[in-house]
Design a protein around this nucleic acid. Structure first.
Lengths: 337, 337
DNA sequence: TACCGAATGTCCATCGTTGACATGCGGCTG
DNA sequence: CAGCCGCATGTCAACGATGGACATTCGGTA
């Protein structure tokens, strides 16, 4: 197994000095076309590839990699986000270092530290630990830090999130416009921030329609042992059952679907998060584009790498209410104004 | 903006030589407890983080990263694979560099080259270019190369694939056991290798049941302009319509579902690839575990990094026929033996 | 003729870390 | 007490590429 070819090997074979080879690869000053040709020829023969480690080291740790740290790696949402980030990075000549915390808050600093040792040029993070203040030092060293899907805690950082609140409010408003007042909110145990935002949007829209207290229709799924199905069941079997339901996320929608399918009632349903068969099944949803969320984060990272300046930014990715039928069932009976 | 602290800064503050600090971090030889304590104290105060670039350079390019190159980044299948790879890598102290070719064959060598310059310790690749012989040189330098989902062309490399052929054969056999003989095969334009394998499994199982020529029931989707829906339509509207259909991949299943839903005929259906709502909809499928596919690739990469030796390996990840109803509809009328 | 710019070379330093080797010192053995 | 051992630590060069400062050669031009 022969060792990897270096600049010097190429120089020797091409009969030039190492400096000239370096000039060809870094494009710093001019090299005559014939020499360049000869060098590239030699490089090809030796399978030469410039050593990025050495170059980056020499240039003071200016790598072309950006780290993305996400939670549970099996969550398709995060991967969509990753896809968006990767698209933007690649387009700009950066590559992505990917790591996951496995949804264990205590592993976040460890994983992040390992990546920062590689001198990534920016850090994109889906915060999972309760506190990101450990990144304060790195931020002072000039590494852009961008959180996605939710803001960081105890750290000043750019943030890209979905329009959770307004998206949910829009959905609920479309239901109140059809006469619904008793609207259930079902959620899975899920991320605090997005849940509270969506819940706030729900309450706000209900308040606008004159419903001040919705607590008896809220099923927030704080207990992991309770399935969304059973929450829908308890809601519909209660004394004052809702005529419509909104769900706080994908899995809650799936649960609600399963339960509603097994029941005679005609309940309006709008889910948060789109899914592949929603169209075929006629399910109305608050759709959003996770890839775009990632793209926005990627663009922001690159912008920050190129011009550090500027105040912290919060970007909201808009959602879209997609009406497919399930959310357009009017409230039964006389309008309960 | 102060510069990053180095070993020397820590050494100066702790009143020792840089080498001693290095020893603390690399754990190579012993340092007295008091000295170690003093050094860690100084390091913490300076927010010191060892520079991986320098370390790896010094150690002859032995990084702890593995590259994964995939095709279309929006394909959820690939991300599941990526998740599996990442799991195994992280467990073993490696991190993953992720890049996509955007399904453009000509960009594969470019993307791969960029990653190899970073001196990755292994390359996991979903081949998309027609020819991977350009990796021959790198292979000789000792970099393990592992292809996933399909074998490389013109390159000796370890490979991890699904049991496409036997999985499809099992599905078709379950249909022939129910009396079906006229079984349609629908595919989307998709990757050559997996398609031909699945098709071979289909033909083989039909042959076992005495059907020698199935070509009139095959719709291979070579033309991107033709939707799976219309293929199902043309199949069912033909002179000799099938009584059952198998699909070659997820998107073909979706198309078939849409079309079958709109028709009166009761056609048995088994899809290749599982999907979220398949259970609710009662769709039988040939299921497989993309995460496991990734894990196997990750494990193989690590094994190769640790002990290079050994002949090339081909690993097949088993599939599982999941019966949910749609594939258990018996053939109508008298058995058409 | 003298000067100019382009193309290339020489030489050395540098990025941050570590391997090879050296040093100093206290303790144990014969 | 000489001689040796091993621990804790230090010195120096090297990993591969590049930047700076400068020298050299050569053909062209004022």
């Amino acid at each position: 197994m022969q060792p990897r070819a270096t600049l010097h090997d190429v120089a020797r074979l091409a009969g030039v000095s190492a400096k000239t080879v370096s000039r060809v690869y870094s494009g710093s000053s001019s090299v005559s076309p014939e020499t360049r040709e000869r060098i590239l020829e030699a490089a090809k023969r030796l399978h030469f590839r410039p050593n990025t480690l050495a170059r980056n080291l020499r240039q003071g740790g200016k790598t072309a990699t950006v780290a993305f740290v996400m939670g549970d790696i099996r969550n398709p949402f995060y991967f969509q986000v990753a896809a968006g980030i990767e698209q933007e990075l690649t387009k700009n000549g950066f590559t992505m270092l990917l790591a996951s915390t496995g949804d264990a808050p205590e592993s976040e600093p460890v994983v992040v530290d390992a990546l920062l040792r590689q001198l990534v040029r920016a850090l994109v993070l889906i915060p999972i630990a309760g506190d990101q203040s450990y990144l304060e030092g790195e931020r002072h060293l000039g590494t852009p830090i961008i959180t996605v899907d939710r803001p960081a805690n105890d750290l000043v950082a750019d943030t890209v999130v979905l329009a959770n609140r307004s998206g949910m409010a829009e959905a609920v408003r479309s239901l109140t416009a059809l006469g619904h007042r008793r609207i259930g909110f079902i959620s899975n145990p899920s991320e605090m921030y997005t849940l509270t935002e969506r819940l706030a949007g729900y309450r706000q829209a209900l308040a606008e329609a004159g419903v001040a207290d919705s607590s008896s229709w809220e099923r927030l799924g704080n207990d992991r042992a309770i399935s969304p199905e059973s929450q829908v069941r308890s809601l519909l079997d209660s004394d004052d059952p809702p005529t419509a339901i909104v769900t706080g996320n994908n899995r809650a929608t799936m649960g609600a679907l399963r339960e509603l399918k097994a029941r005679p009632e005609e309940i309006a349903l709008i889910g948060f998060d789109d899914f592949e068969l929603a169209e075929m099944l006629g399910i109305s949803v608050v759709a959003h584009d996770p890839i775009e969320l990632g793209r926005a984060a990627g663009r922001l990272a690159i912008e920050r790498i190129e011009h550090h300046a500027g105040p912290t930014r919060l970007i909201e990715i808009p959602t879209r209410l997609v009406k497919r039928g399930s959310g357009e069932i009017p409230a039964p009976g006389p309008r309960a104004d």
